[in-house]
């Protein structure tokens, strides 16, 4: 297991997350995609921490922060999605098309 393996996994994860952000119909699906992307970054941090920086703490602290932030972000996003659902009776991303031009 070298650095590149980890990085490739992370990249794949990132790509998958992005893919679901771009293709999911449901707003929550998009949110999950974003979470995947965040996790990809986390893997990167840990991998770099392990192989490059050789500092036991930094990467892990960063990842902890990321987890916290991701949770907060998810909370806010979910509540907003909820309110959007209430307003439109739908959580389909394509139904949010009132604002344009």
């Amino acid at each position: 297991m070298t650095l590149s393996h980890f990085l490739l996994v992370a990249l794949a994860l990132f790509a998958l997350g992005l893919y679901s952000v771009l293709t999911r119909r449901h707003l929550i699906g998009l949110l999950i995609g974003v979470e995947l992307m965040l996790n990809a970054a986390s893997i990167n941090f840990l991998a770099f921490d392990r192989f490059v920086v050789k500092d036991p703490a930094t990467g892990q602290i960063i990842v902890l922060f990321i987890i916290g932030l991701a949770a907060a972000e998810a909370a806010i996003a979910l509540s907003i999605i909820l309110s959007a659902y209430r307003a439109h009776r739908s959580a389909d991303v394509d139904d949010l098309d009132e604002l344009k031009n």
Partner: peptide
């Protein structure tokens, strides 16, 4: 209702770009 639509788009776009930023940050860190 438009407010929540705007917010939903804003937050999802924002979260995506924040994730991209973070990914970039990880590369920089590396």
């Amino acid at each position: 209702p438009r407010g929540s639509e705007a917010a939903a788009k804003y937050v999802l776009f924002g979260a995506t770009s924040s994730a991209i930023t973070l990914y970039g940050l990880s590369l920089v860190y590396g």
